[in-house]
Simulated assay, not measured.
Amino acid sequence: MSELHRHLMLGTVLAAALLPVPVLAAGSEDFGYCRDDITTGWNFYCDPEKEEPAPDQPAEAPAAPAAPAAPEKPKSYTEQIEEFRKELDEIKYRAVLEPTPENLQDYMEAQQRMSGMASAFTDQWQRVLFKSPALDINTRFPMSQMGGAVYQDQIRVARETSLKEAADNLGFMVVVEDSAICGLCTPQLEVIKRMQANFGIEPIVVTVDGSFHPLFPEAVVDTGQLKKLGLLEHPRPFIALVEPQAGIVEPLGGGLLTEDVILERVHVVTKIPAGERY
């Protein structure tokens, strides 16, 4: 190749090199660049695809510190005694259903423990009574034989006095009917007759049906008084303290009442306010 020809070729190459190169816009992908599988490796000047930013994830709240365990509530005395009772029942029933020497011994030992607890309770109970006479029933109702005899004498005097006062201020009424109908009427009149002799009371004997009773031949026949007093429907025999003028009626009860019962009931209704008997 001649020197002239070499210079021409070099000039042509230089001229081509100096020609302006078109600048690729950001959207050059539309012209096929950066998408051609063959030329992708050569188009290193293409911008890589931008990854979409991940949406913000809410920050996890820090775990709350574990609350301290609440202290175990102590068992009440009721719960404790219920547990003891259930345990004792279980031991007993096991010994009954499986009466082996071991099971029987367990039950006997459990019984002994329970007896010990009862003994300690009884001992303390008595000691408290020694220090607190107001709690001791013995101050009102003597428990000894001697004290009981004295108390019974005193209460009998009080009851007899109450009976006499009631008989003086109120009518001591005994309601009866024919003994063929009322099998308890004659025995009741026998009790009243003895009390008449012992205490000097004058009972008012009233017959509902006009029947005759030898112990009280002067008995009054009811002519409507019992209905006015509200006593007509009571079963016979029947005893009541009454004062017709003032309308006072204090029933003592029906059926066969003994002397002691009559004395007690008269004393209760005339001397002891309701709620203070015991």
Rank of each mutant, 00 (worst) to 15 (best):
A25V: 00
V23Y: 00
G275A: 10
S119M: 05
K86A: 15
A16T: 13
D56W: 11
V157S: 13
G27S: 13
N169S: 06
P22C: 04
H7W: 07
E72V: 13
L129G: 00
T270Q: 08
T100C: 06
E60L: 08
M143E: 15
V205G: 10
E60F: 02
A197G: 06
I239C: 03
L88M: 05
K50R: 14
D106Q: 14
E51S: 09
M173I: 08
S115G: 09
G147M: 06
G183I: 07
T270A: 08
L232T: 03
L8V: 15
I239M: 13
S119N: 11
I201T: 02
G253F: 08
P273S: 12
R6M: 11
Q188Y: 09
Y93L: 14
V206L: 10
I201E: 05
A158G: 03
P101N: 11
P62M: 06
A197T: 05
I137F: 11
E202P: 00
G210W: 04
D260G: 07
T100Q: 02
A66D: 02
C182A: 04
E79W: 03
P62C: 01
R35V: 15
G41D: 02
A66L: 08
P74K: 02
A158T: 01
E109M: 14
I91Y: 00
M108L: 15
A15L: 13
M114V: 01
L163W: 08
R194D: 11
G224F: 02
S28E: 08
G116Y: 00
M146L: 12
R277A: 15
Y45N: 10
M114W: 10
T100E: 00
K193P: 02
M117Y: 10
A219D: 11
C34N: 01
V23A: 01
I91F: 01
P55W: 04
G148L: 02
E98K: 06
Q111V: 11
A70M: 01
G27R: 09
D209G: 03
E109F: 15
A26V: 05
E98V: 10
L241Q: 12
L4S: 04
P101C: 10
A54E: 05
T139P: 04
R159K: 12
P65V: 09
D222G: 07
T207Y: 01
T258M: 06
M195G: 05
D47K: 13
D260C: 02
S144E: 13
S2P: 06
L135I: 09
E29V: 04
G116H: 01
E160W: 00
Q225Y: 07
A54F: 02
R6L: 13
A70T: 02
A70G: 05
Y93K: 09
K92F: 14
Q124C: 08
E250W: 07
R159D: 00
I38V: 14
A69M: 06
T12M: 03
Y278F: 15
T161K: 14
D56M: 12
D89Q: 15
L14V: 14
A15R: 12
A16K: 05
G224D: 04
D36G: 07
A17P: 11
R140Q: 15
D106I: 05
G183A: 15
L88R: 04
L24E: 08
Q112N: 08
I272F: 10
S115D: 11
L231R: 05
R94H: 09
A240C: 01
P273I: 02
Q145K: 10
I155S: 09
Q126E: 12
R127G: 00
F130P: 00
L14C: 12
E3N: 12
K271S: 13
A66P: 04
R127H: 03
D30L: 11
L189A: 11
